[in-house]
Design a binder for these strands. Sequence first.
DNA 1: GCCAACGTTGGC
DNA 2: GCCAACGTTGGC
Length: 152
Amino acid sequence: MPRCWLVKSEPSAYSIDDLARDGRTCWDGVRNYQARNFLRDQMKAGDPVLFYHSNADPPAIVGLARVCREAYPDHTARNPQGPHFDPAATEENPIWMMVDIEFIQKFARPVTLAEMKADPDLAGLMLAQRGSRLSVQPVAEAHFRRICEQGR
DNA sequence: GCCAACGTTGGC
DNA sequence: GCCAACGTTGGC
């Protein structure tokens, strides 16, 4: 069984509808070491990915995607005009990495953060922990299945 | 818009 | 290596 993941995006920046339209996209702009390590070291092609809308009303998991390309350098770190520029990134040492993900489905019903926090079957879900800011996080398989059920 | 939680930076 | 200051995230 592949590992399951969750990625966050503010819908005003990139939403599940944007992914549905694009079919696939490069998941650039991750600028946190822990998130990068997950993405670089453990995300494998074919792994399922829950798509979460942060800073949304309501914050919720809204759909499902899949990793379709494993980690490679995030070139946006080397674009001084871009919002994800990091002057420390070089061609030899890109520092930041990204994967590509592809659209699978939009949930029939968003699974809200409030609902997940209240669900005993989702006890321990990283997303529901207080102060959880990690934008790429692993999800236990049982939790993953539960969330997919709720979104159907 | 507020603010708590968290990560990073940089002086010492 | 400590820790205060600062910037960001993201729920509410």
